[in-house]
Each structure stands twice: as C-alpha cells, then as structure tokens.
Design a protein around this nucleic acid. Structure first.
Lengths: 295, 295
DNA sequence: CCATTTGTCTGACTCTAGTCAGATAATCGG
DNA sequence: CCGATTATCTGACTAGAGTCAGACAAATGG
C-alpha cells in the first residue's frame, strides 16, 4: 500500500481513538487550552506571557483570559517582571503543580486503559511500532537552520561531535582549543554552519568551510545518538552540499577516520569517491570528494 | 521503555505534527464535523441517517442539522427511504463528490508533504510501523457485544465462517440449512452469541451452546482475515469462556478440523486438552475441553 | 520630555461542536 | 385499529476556542 494511504488510514484510526487522550483534561474540569497552557508553564518553569504566546501561538487577549482563569483557580501566580514592568511573569503555584501531577496521572491511566486489552506481546509490538513511527515522524518534520558557528547551540553541537570522536577513536581525540579564526571559516562568504532542530533540541549539525578555489570542505558533521536510523545524516549531507553550491563551490571534500564506518558508508552511498590525502589532519585516514556543480 | 510512555510520547509528537491533517477541511470552508460526515457518506455510499449516527456517534438532532447544512450547500441529497418512510436516505450529489475529491486531494497533498523529506526506505519503514500500530490500536479498541444469533450481522459473520471452512477443508464444507432451532441453542438460557465490532464492521464472532449438564460448547468462532495477528482469537475465546461460566457451565468443549492448525494452536495455548470424540460432527477430527469453573 | 512602540488587558464578537427536551410522523405488535 | 416504538427534526441551550479593535501603562528613541 502506498505510504500516504497508510498514513491517512492511521490518522483516521488515531484521531478517533487516541485523540481521546486529549479529553483527559476535560475530566479534571480544565478545558484543553488551559491544560495545554498549564503543561507549558510547568515544562519551561516561570515564563513571561510573551514567551507563552510565542510557544503556543495564542492571541494575546485570549492568553490573558486563559491566564486569569488559571489564576482564579489558584493554579498559577502572575506577577510583573521586575526588569520590565510591562511584562508579566507566570509561575505554577503548589496547587498548579498538584494539578499537573493529576493530569499526568490521568493521561497515564488512559494510556494504560487503551493498552489493557492487548497481550504483553502485542503491547511490545505496538510500542515498537509507535517508537519507530515517532522517530520517523519527528525526523520528517525536523527543521534545518543556518546559525553562527559561535552561537551557544552550535558550540554545544560541536562539543557533542568532539566527544563522540573521543569515544570512538582508539587513542581518543583532542580537538585543541576552538579558536575564533577556526569558527570564522564556517561563516559567509565561503562557509556556513547548519543545525537540525526538533522541538528546539539540536539533532544534528554540520559545516562547510572554503578550501581553495571552488572547493568547499564539509566539517563537523554529527547526528545525535537518538536520531540514528532516521536518515538525518544523509539529509544533512545533502543540505551542506546544496549550501556549498550556493556559496560558489563546485567540489566538496571531506576527511574521516577509518573507525567511522557508518560515516564512510554514508559518503560512498551518496556519490563520494576516495581521493588522496589533501590535508595534514592527524586523525584523518580517508579523504573523499564529490562534484556538486551539476545539481 | 514502558508502553504507556511510548504511547504518550507518540501522542504528543503526533498531535503536534499530523493532527494538522485535520485542518485540511477548514481550508475548504467546511467545518470538521461536516467534512467527516461527508467522508462517511462518500465512503459507505447512500446511507440512512441512523447508520451515520451509529458510525460517527452523533446526537440525532446534531446530525439532522449537519445534514441540512450539507444539503443547503447542495453537497448531499436527502430523501425518505421507500422501505420505511421514517428513515431518510442520504447520498452524495455531483457537487458532493467533487468536494470529497478535493478534500481527498488536499489530505493526500498534506500527507505527501509530511513524507516528502523521508527517503523511500524510511517511508516504507514508517508505513510498516503505522500499519502495525493501526491494527493494534484498532484491536485494542474493539467492542464485544452479545447479539441474537438470528440478527443480520450474526448471520453474515457465520456466513464468513462457513465460507472459510469451505475454502480450507479439502473436500469443502456444507453447513446445511441454518435452522431456527440451530440458532436458538445460542440464546439464553444456556447459550450466547458474541460479535466483535470495529467501526460497525464485524471483526470476529463466536457462540456458546449448552451440551448437557454444566457443559457448554464453543461454536462458530471466526476472526476476519484482516484481523489476523491482533490477538482477537484469544480474546474472543476468553470472552466466550467467561460468558459460558456466567451461563452456569463449568466445562467448555469444542471440536475442530485438523486443517485448522492455527485454531488448534490457539486452543492448546489457552489451556484446552484433547479429549475423545463427544459428538458426531462429520467434519470434526479433534475434540477439546477446558475447565472454566475456577476463574 | 514627548511621540512611538511594546506588552498586556478588556469588551464585544464569531464559529464549532455539541447536549437535552420535546414534537411529529411512520411503523410495528398485538 | 390503537397504543407503543422508532426515526428524525426543531428549539433552546452551553462551553470551548478563538478573533479583532481598542484601551492603557510602561519602556524607548531621538
């Protein structure tokens, strides 16, 4: 069957039966919108109304009313922000925390009720299927974003990358200090740095830096462990190649270590061919190149 | 990870990203409830309001208004049922068919848009996972219902059962005429007949009839082909055992043919032991018994 | 320091998605 | 044939989830 047909059929089944998990909230006398708001406040901690509006996409008047409703039930406390007294900071009260815990419990009970008729084995199968679907749906809706390589998220992502190399290389890996010039090469013109984010969390990263006339080098490509098997590596590679083309490069090169067999397989699957050593990176053992002109 | 946690996590991911498929409908100026109704009418063909109400779980007054709304837009035609002039038969008009096609296309485009970033292989994996999840979620929410064995749905289900035996037995199978006495044995006191329904469609059936003091016989247990692997057989068996106990039986028996290896495995897995022939059913080759007193 | 912008709030709406209590007409059972 | 039942419809509600315009106060830029 075609994928879209399966997706649409599932969507029908799902909204009919599990969509009801949402109605959890109604059971506790809290409308859905209010419950979502409460969840958001509980999740991010004390926030300004502004941030809530942005995160949930609410009208300011509507949010104001929702917040007052929660305040009247003593679930949240609203106070002016000392730094800017136009802003209002919202935080959970004790009672709000308890309500959140009850919502959570109710949601758990409903989930349990749904699974109850299934045997242990079938529950396992369902969990496995849903976990796969979850990963792939999240992967499909991931957002790629060009960021400055010196930004905190970019630095964190590169840090993960270095940590992974350190774990996987036999003798460990020492990136040396991350100098400003080092980062500057992954900025325009000639360079770029890309993050893949899902729900604000960084899932993958990668950069391009210039390596001579018409040649771009792909650097620091990394995919978060939790995202293995979702094809993010291939998508990031493709994205970086496109960006390299847009930056005026006609060829991209990259180096890698022999222990990174999955990375090597990825490059080979995507049209990279082995070339001679082109740099003096002591950790590099394999060098690749791909023509990205004709795209 | 625990199943409920996976389910809840998936629910969050899903409502955020795919729940948007619903908003399709809004794009075409048709409220969600009306669009769902239109889909249902298009899917099952001309139907009575009664059937629509049962399938979508709508209040009769609400349905009446929704139908009038669709009628005013000339998307459906409503006419009295010639057979029973209280009933009203709803059918799609030309314009209704076109609207449905547009809704369908819109939904297809959205689904395609969601899947687009995935590779062919990942789309296949997602489709497989969703198909599994779909089957199991539907199985988990299936409803068992005691019906009269002479009711149309019961007769249809038994018909499927006989057809399957006819296909699977080497020399075919002839149930003979379904006599009234034959059916009467699967009514209280002493007997029962159970259907498993999903969205109104019969997914499985089975009956109990008295077979002497304290002994019930399980008969005509059948599971729809599309529901294989969802554990419906085991659940129906369990349900019939419970019903037999409630009817005062302390032992249940059943017979089967050697070609029905899956059924035999099911019985053995669920505590049935082989016994000597207890009837003169010419198609029976194996006889089983289970003590259902201590439950 | 004054006009503008920003962040929030209020009032007045709209639309969707129902629910509930009867009314009405057709059909059924005895 | 008559009373009960069934299938649908109408009227009168409610609650949720927003939208939009404008008011108001605090902050900001020149």
């Amino acid at each position: 069957m075609e994928s879209t047909a399966v997706l649409r059929r599932f969507n029908r089944t799902y909204t009919q039966r599990i969509g009801a998990l949402d109605e959890t909230f109604l059971g506790l006398g809290l409308p859905l919108a209010s419950a979502r708001l409460l969840f958001e406040i509980g999740y991010v901690g004390p926030v300004t109304a502004q941030v809530l509006r942005a995160r949930l996409g609410l009208d300011s008047g509507y949010l104001s009313r929702l917040l007052r409703g929660l305040e009247e039930r003593a679930l949240v406390a609203v106070a002016p922000d000392p730094g800017d007294r136009r802003r209002r900071v919202v935080s959970l009260t004790r009672a709000g925390g308890r309500m959140l815990a009850r919502l959570d419990q109710r949601s758990e009970e409903l989930a349990l009720g749904l699974l109850e008729p299934l045997s242990e084995r079938q529950r396992g199968r369902l969990a496995e299927a849903l976990a796969t679907a979850d990963l792939l749906v999240r992967a499909a809706t991931i957002a790629f974003e060009v960021v400055d390589p010196a930004s905190p998220d970019a630095r964190t992502a590169m840090g993960h990358y270095f940590d992974e190399l350190d774990r996987r290389f036999d003798g460990g890996f020492d990136p040396g200090p991350l100098t400003d010039e080092d980062l500057a090469t992954m900025r325009p013109p000639g360079g770029t740095f890309v993050l893949a984010r899902s729900d604000g969390e960084v899932a993958a990263c990668g950069g391009v830096q210039p390596l001579g006339a018409g040649i771009g080098e792909i650097k620091r490509m990394w995919v978060h462990d939790g995202w293995r098997g979702a094809g993010l590596g291939a998508r990031m590679l493709r994205r970086l190649e496109d960006d390299a083309t847009a930056l005026g490069h006609t060829v991209v090169r990259l180096d890698t270590n022999g222990t990174l067999t999955d990375a090597i397989a990825l490059y080979e699957r995507n049209g990279y061919r082995s070339i001679e050593r082109y740099n003096d990176n002591p950790y590099a053992e394999r060098w690749f190149e791909k023509d990205v002109r004709s795209r």
